[in-house]
Design a protein around this nucleic acid. Sequence first.
DNA 1: CTTGACCCTCCCATGATGGGAGACCTTATC
DNA 2: GATAAGGTCTCCCATCATGGGAGGGTCAAG
Lengths: 128, 128
Amino acid sequence: MNIGQASRETGVSIKMIRYYEQTGLIPPVARNQAGYRHYSENDLHRLRFIRRARDLGFSIKHIAILLSLWQNHDRENAQVRDIANQHISGLQNRITEMEAMITTLQKLVDECAGQDRPECPILTDLEH
Amino acid sequence: MNIGQASRETGVSIKMIRYYEQTGLIPPVARNQAGYRHYSENDLHRLRFIRRARDLGFSIKHIAILLSLWQNHDRENAQVRDIANQHISGLQNRITEMEAMITTLQKLVDECAGQDRPECPILTDLEH
DNA sequence: CTTGACCCTCCCATGATGGGAGACCTTATC
DNA sequence: GATAAGGTCTCCCATCATGGGAGGGTCAAG
């Protein structure tokens, strides 16, 4: 199967498939005589794995680790859980930060809307 | 005041101050004969504005608009509110996405921890 | 044999930030 | 006045994941 169809099957863009190969996240795939990449069912499997992990917000570095654990039968499941828990914590921290931003912003917007003064409380806050 | 002290006063790194000038977010500042940048109280004011807006998560593009509204006395406060509301929506959308990721991940981690089978539900999910 | 769809590599761009090299300036100390 | 330390200048490179596009080769159907 050529790269275009592999892309359609897995939901990973052609650009990203080549990028993953180039950066070593996936091993080089087979080529035909013209140099076209050729994807086996196994290759597609790996791409779907990556796609799913990206959808869950894992970084490429974490995905690299997950891929190696995936194919290492000596792994401890706890290692996988560690990666996942680490990722969950990262997400939660970012959410906490963003919620704090929203709280501040919403208060400023409310103040700004609730009055007809010429100066805008949002800008006044930023100025400070 | 030189750039180093301006950086310390405003909390904006030297690198970023120069970058903001280079990309036009702030106008070029005065220079002494040796070419050293020199910052007035007004310049510091602008930098603090930017710093605060960055802390609230505004993109540079949004900050550029906010800066121009800040100095435009004909502006409508509603314009400023629009930018802020737009930003709040963006943050909320990202939070929603991340919360969905956390929900999925947490479920997988719980399943993985609650059993002693050799296969890991997290990897099994990613595989799928 | 032509046409259109596909594929290849290589280069560039994003957004915000930092690192570092090599050169110049300033200030304080001896 | 010399020297050392530290501040500043510009220019280039890297990040992370992703996309755009140029210029050229390939393949299959008509």
